[in-house]
Design a protein around this nucleic acid. Structure first.
Lengths: 116, 116
DNA sequence: TTGCTATACCTCGCATTCCGAGGCATTGTC
DNA sequence: GACAATGCCTCGGAATGCGAGGTATAGCAA
């Protein structure tokens, strides 16, 4: 099954933040990593990830610094700033909340609400 | 807590389809119904719902017919077409799949994956 | 040397989405 | 007659995802 674009919308940023919570990484690796974790459910490209990284850096959610990796090439490493950690926490909460509403609507019979 | 627009993105259509699965309804009522179920977590307006309804009708996912309700006013009732039922089923599946990926990324410690 | 692939960065433009603001008509109430 | 509630609708802006393309370097093979 291939996840439609619409379903993925708005979740990518949360996914990205969660990934960076585990440690600094750079754009190219992040794309590979996300696609690996998606297990073929969806595929992300650089055209999607780089603009998000730039925006988050501009917003102060991510901090970036250039470094030469073990391959000899320059990489731009991103890591969560303190603001980024708070942001991730917020988004985790929002995700859980949405999950509950979706659960209640998609499986309404699980606990019939007489008020509706 | 107020759900940010980004988190909600892409889920509204699924929510709408799930609501119509329970029976036909019309735009104005759908808006009220969705907001009631959101329990203040988010608020949707008619400017959001009507375009979605029109698009879904055009795509053959919803069938619509005008009828005069018990209030005396004309209403445009929408119900799921057979295609719509299949679509809802698909979206339910996509939601569950996304949920699993999100779960795995947001709580990576739950089952450490050594390949990452 | 010359190419090719993988790595690694980036931008541009299209299609799509949410949503606030507004417009129109009708019903019932004060 | 004024007003709110019901009920439909459109328009434009901001933001998103993403395919397509561009640049440059490292390493390998012909």
């Amino acid at each position: 099954m291939k996840l439609s674009r619409k379903t993925l919308e708005g979740s990518l940023e949360t996914l990205l933040l969660a990934l960076l919570e585990e440690g600094p990484s750079y754009g190219y690796e992040i794309v590979q990593n996300l696609n690996a974790r998606a297990h073929g459910l969806f595929t992300t490209g650089e055209g999607t990830i780089y603009p998000i990284l730039h925006r988050l850096e501009k917003q102060g959610v991510l901090a970036a610094h250039w470094r030469v990796g073990e391959t000899g090439r320059k990489r731009k490493y991103y890591r969560l700033s303190p603001k980024g950690k708070r942001e991730l926490s917020t988004q985790r909460g929002e995700w859980n909340a949405l999950q509950q509403v979706m659960e209640a609507c998609l499986n309404p019979n699980a606990f019939k609400n007489p008020s509706l």
